[in-house]
Computed example of a mutant assay.
Amino acid sequence: MVDIIYVLELIGIAAFAISGMIVARSKNMDPVGVFTIGFITALGGGTLRDLIMDNHPLYWIKHQELPMLILAMAIVFSYWQRAERLRESRILLPDAIGLGVFSILGAQLALDLGHSLFVASLLGVMTGTFGGALRDTLCNEVPYIFRKDQIYASISFAGCWVYFLCQWLLSNEALPLTIGLLFIVMVRLLAVRFDIRLQRDPGNH
């Protein structure tokens, strides 16, 4: 039987790694830089989560195939000529997918380790956003999570609670995962498309 959690983790890691590598290539980084940014984007949030919860060994150390996958992707990205023409705006979809996957899976891991719903939701947000925040910081960009013109962490937080609610209402294990993931991805994309923000400057309509 296919392990749906592991498949989702692979999708999230690949999506976040791609978003990091697109930004790295746009900053004219060499292959080492492309790998580093891809690695940090994909695994930074999960690493912080594991350290906070004292969950050892760290997930990517336990599953060494994950950094190996990122390394292979970095090599392809570094020598794929068309990658140079990918603009940073192209990271929106893979970043939204990574945000959704890691927010939900991070929250579930926290629940599995016995934490409360509220703490699990915060750890889910941390898992989903920290890698992207590191990516943007290292690439000299203001992280999405701190931009007034972006709605980001709050979508992750709300998505975790949608997931918890679906777990309570539905007996099927896969359905709450799917609903929570799609909620985060779709709301993130719609927020960017329609310029939805938590706060606007006075006079900015």
Rank of each mutant, 00 (worst) to 15 (best):
H115S: 04
V34F: 06
L58S: 08
K148V: 13
A74F: 00
G20Q: 06
V162E: 12
L123F: 14
L138F: 15
G114F: 07
P57Q: 10
L10A: 11
A107K: 03
A133F: 05
M68K: 02
L189D: 07
I104F: 03
S116Y: 14
V125R: 00
G124D: 11
L134Y: 08
L113Y: 02
L190A: 15
M73A: 12
P202G: 00
V34G: 05
V125I: 13
L105G: 07
Y144M: 15
I37N: 05
W60T: 06
S103H: 10
I40D: 06
D112R: 11
D3T: 13
R200V: 06
R85T: 12
G128K: 02
R193S: 13
S26K: 09
R147L: 09
E173P: 05
V142G: 05
L182V: 09
Q108G: 02
G33P: 01
D195P: 05
S19N: 01
L113I: 00
R147P: 10
P67I: 01
I4E: 12
R147Q: 09
V7D: 02
D112G: 14
G20K: 00
F39K: 04
Y79E: 00
K27D: 09
F118Q: 10
L122G: 01
I196N: 02
N55R: 08
F16H: 05
I40H: 06
Q199D: 12
I37M: 00
P57F: 11
G180P: 09
P176N: 12
V125D: 09
S78K: 02
G100H: 07
G114R: 07
M186Y: 03
F35E: 06
Q108P: 01
D30I: 09
S156G: 15
G114V: 10
G132R: 01
L169N: 07
F194R: 05
Q64N: 05
V101C: 02
R90C: 12
V162L: 11
L122Q: 10
S19Q: 07
D136P: 08
G98H: 04
S19Y: 04
R85H: 14
M29G: 01
P67F: 00
R135K: 06
A15Q: 00
G106D: 07
L175T: 15
L10E: 01
T129D: 08
F146T: 12
L86M: 15
L182I: 11
L99F: 03
M29W: 09
L122H: 07
M53K: 11
G20R: 02
T178I: 10
M126W: 13
I61P: 07
V2F: 15
P67C: 04
L43Y: 11
I61Q: 10
L123Y: 14
G128R: 04
F39N: 05
I184A: 01
N172P: 04
H63Q: 15
F157K: 04
K27T: 04
M186P: 02
L58Q: 04
A107H: 07
F118R: 07
L93G: 00
H115T: 07
I91S: 07
E141Q: 15
D201Y: 13
H56P: 00
D30Y: 04
R49S: 11
D3N: 15
